[in-house]
Amino acid sequence: MDNQTPSFITRIVLALSVFFRILFDPRFALGVLGLKEGKGPAAVASESTDSKADTSAPPPPPRLKEAGPDAALQLLGLLQQEGRFIDFIEEDVVSYADADIGAAARVVHEGCRKAMREHLTIAEVRSDAEGSRVTLAKGFDATAIRLTGNVVGEPPFTGVVTHKGWRATEVRLPKLSVNHDVTILAPAEVEL
């Protein structure tokens, strides 16, 4: 498999799972961003080792907050409930024709989109068209805008928007009863 490019099917699955990892795992997202900028796997790997070295170096250990699993599991449950997300990812796609996978992808796309729109409001970070030139003034938000490429000198910076970015402007997850077990992403069904 080493040098083979993945099939279309595998790519769909990969795209979906990567989408969520990008959403929930900033470090992973950083790596993907590197890939997207064309640095190649090696560069990404070395970058992530660098950052590892950075974080472990300072004497007072940096305080990292740990994301509770509840909201992530709840969202996963909603995606399964509306869009059969886990069924899709867990199924072995190798033996199926692209048309069959495409049909299932419709269910997943429609359902996940409904769930996402119901529970999250997602807006573009930059409203400029991708490919257009923009100028970033001094003091721009470095979390919302990631600089890549020839990052030298002082702002204002001028560059090209390669990805407009996404921002969750509102999260509306349903409330849960106190004893609700979020680890059950979908209950087993038994018909009597």
């Binding site: 199924e91 199926y96 069959d100 299932a104 419709r106 269910v107 997943v108």
Partner: peptide, 12 residues
């Protein structure tokens, strides 16, 4: 239109 399967095998 896709009528999803009832079981966990969505594609099949």
């Amino acid at each position: 239109l896709v009528v999803p399967s009832r079981g966990s095998r969505l594609i099949g």
